[in-house]
Design a protein around this nucleic acid. Structure first.
Lengths: 143, 143
DNA sequence: ATGTTCATATTCACCGATAAGCACTTTGTT
DNA sequence: AACAAAGTGCTTATCGGTGAATATGAACAT
């Protein structure tokens, strides 16, 4: 289970440290792709195949579904973590997610997400995560 | 059942003593997350896996669900209690809950809560938790 | 009251993870 | 061939996390 929030910075070549606590869960080789809300998604190999399976079940007759599948598959790249714990983020993905220097990596259960730090902070101060909304969701789930 | 209120202080590295009476209930490894009202939640592993199971059922395509899952999982970290009974609170969680020196740990049935002492006092002197208000809510709940 | 034990507080030292800079290699372009 | 750009790998310094040692204080028994 991938959890936690970690701040690190890209080096001049666009490489990022994979937090030590995530490294063993996600594996030496993993997949990153364009994510939702302006971040990047990262999947371990097994989670990626799960995800692909789900995409396959979508009806190709539906334009929305076709767009959705294209979005995720076209942006996907396999990454490898080097001896020093870093991985390179392809330039098109860096551009998509506005990653330049300061980044935040978060674990979200089955995947990680990579955010531009500023965007992450903005997202968190947004009303989309108000205490009320969270409390409401908690009771809905019976927590 | 987790109960009681305990005051302790963080050391220079951000570690906190787990009160002896809570230690055996919560286990050697447990999970802390961002909580509501500016405190942190702490769950035993069994309570946490229940929670995780529920989160897994939420749909990726729903923004509300994404927000909710992100809040709890990105804010979560597994903690281990060391030989001296202490555990480290990750810096982002310390920041979130304004924990610097004096802290209060309370047991709340299925979870513990960790508060900045000042915040805890302020919260308790608030009128929202006057004995009268609580009694009123109790009758509403049919107690 | 005194001593004993257990829990908590405080300080210090060490080690590993990370940041940052640099050099070398590869690839593609002119 | 020469160069620029991108990718890969190494080295060093720093900082945060971790464990050990010691001090303080409360609870309890004699």
């Amino acid at each position: 289970m991938l959890i936690g929030e970690y701040e690190h910075s890209l080096d001049a070549k666009g490489r990022l440290i994979m937090p030590a606590k995530i490294r063993e869960d996600i594996g030496e080789k993993f997949i990153i792709t364009k994510g939702l809300d302006g971040c990047l998604f990262g999947f371990s190999q097994t989670e990626w195949t799960n995800f692909e399976e789900k995409l396959k079940t979508l009806p190709l007759t539906n334009k929305n579904a076709r767009d959705f599948v294209r979005f995720f598959l076209s942006g996907a790249i396999e990454c490898e973590i080097d001896k020093q714990g870093r991985f390179l983020i392809a330039s098109n993905l860096r551009e998509y997610s506005s990653l330049e220097k300061e980044a935040v990596i978060i674990g979200v259960g089955t995947r990680i997400e990579i955010w531009n730090k500023e965007k992450w902070k903005a997202y968190n101060s947004d009303e989309n995560i108000s205490a009320d909304a969270i409390a409401e969701n908690m009771t809905m789930l019976g927590i």
